[in-house]
């Protein structure tokens, strides 16, 4: 199903779905889980919403929403404002979801996710090196990334369910 020629209602639905996912995952991203003597942050979950941003969503509004989501995550995680925002925008610049012709397949989405991980890890590492004059604590950088990767299939299924729901709703209207 291509969204480039789809109705504005459907595009709006895609945008709302992506934004909702972004907000929910940003809220979840402020938490950490203590299980079996491991304390792992969920801070990389919102990046899933960015990597899987639907191609049907209005582009300008998407970029503004992604910028605001990034800044919100920076404030909520007490990081330096702009770090996550920069990582998200660079992901969008590289992946160009608004130029994509087809919906994502699972393997394509997985490749995008790995790309997003590399871009974000590089941005956080090098910007952090400049700001804090120190390298990051690698375990705290990589453990949440690994946890988000494990959550990827689940988020992928939920995202597709939400998209189907929005599509059916649009067709019914």
């Amino acid at each position: 199903m291509s969204f480039l020629g789809s109705s504005s209602g459907l595009r709006q639905g895609q945008f709302i779905q992506a934004l909702l996912a972004g907000v929910l995952l940003t809220l979840l991203g402020t938490l950490n889980v203590n299980l079996l003597d491991f304390n792992v942050s969920l801070s990389w979950l919102p990046l899933l919403a960015i990597a899987l941003w639907p191609h049907g969503a209005p582009p300008v509004r998407s970029v503004i929403a992604i910028l605001l989501l990034g800044l919100a995550q920076d404030w909520l995680s007490m990081g330096v404002p702009g770090q996550w925002g920069l990582a998200y925008l660079l992901c969008i610049l590289f992946f160009r979801p608004f130029d994509r012709l087809k919906p994502l397949s699972f393997m394509h989405a997985l490749r995008l996710w790995i790309g997003a991980l590399i871009i974000s890890a590089s941005v956080l590492t090098f910007s952090g090196r400049i700001i804090y004059d120190d390298w990051p604590y690698w375990a705290a950088l990589l453990q949440p990334a690994l946890l988000a990767t494990l959550a990827f299939p689940l988020i992928w299924i939920l995202r597709n369910r939400m998209q189907s729901w929005f599509s059916r709703r649009e067709e019914a209207l």
Binding site: P59, L71, P81, G82, G85, L86, L89
Partner: peptide, 17 residues
Amino acid sequence: LVYWVLLVGLIICITLM
């Protein structure tokens, strides 16, 4: 327009940092 908005966003982020 999207790329202009992206550019402005990137400048905002770098300025904030």
